[in-house]
Amino acid sequence: MNWDFGPFPTFGGGPESNRIASKFDTFRMVATDEELVAKSMAGDLESFNQLVLRWERPIYALAYRVLGRDEDARDVAQETFLRAFRALPGFKGQAKFSSWLYRIALNLCRDWIRRKKRTPVVDMPEGVDIAELAAEQGPVESIEDLVARQEMSRIVAEGMKLLPEEQRTAIVLKEYHGLTFQEIAELQGCPLSTVKTRLYQGLSVLRKHLESQGMTSLNSGRAS
């Protein structure tokens, strides 16, 4: 157990990881992933459940953004932890636990896409009460801002759907999970330069989509 109130161990610096980190910082008794993994390998189920609690949200968010469906993302997240639990005795610790989890989740997402043989369709959550959302967001965001943000979220989701799986995954890992180019390259099994190319091409496609939706502020003079 680490009692020195050190920083929460995160994978990169993405918003998903930071949100969980701030939640755990409040308790100020944070065991590192490595410690929890060691205890889990020794048979401590509670330690593994702590790892699940720590990483379920980032893994779900990753699956949701790659697959685009809430139910499928839940299934993938659940299966990710099940596979991790079963394969834990074989985990050598050469990579970070989070990298290992991300790899399992991405493989599952890839299998899902191949099995279903269809492009991910982004379902916007149904039955969202704007007033309820506004209450959750607090007084810092007005109803108008919230509605505008929701609309923007929908446009982004539609744009992500236009991207090939490799570009979408690269953007999700970079933008929302804060992984480095090197980490993405290892997860995707491609050279570093390919990751940069995928990111550039993905961002360019998104930019065109956003411009087609009336976001003219993104215009530039350089041909991509």
């Binding site: 189920l45 779900y60 949701y64 982004v156 961002l203 956003l210 993104l218 530039s220």
Partner: peptide, 30 residues
């Protein structure tokens, strides 16, 4: 030209932050 390209891509990144997954109650336990 490059400045505008940089600004546009940075703008795309800003817009991307609006996309959040639904707040799903997960609570997986082994």
């Amino acid at each position: 030209t490059c400045g505008a390209e940089y600004a546009a891509l940075t703008g795309v990144r800003t817009v991307l932050q609006a996309w959040a997954p639904p707040h799903a109650g997960l609570g997986f336990t082994v």
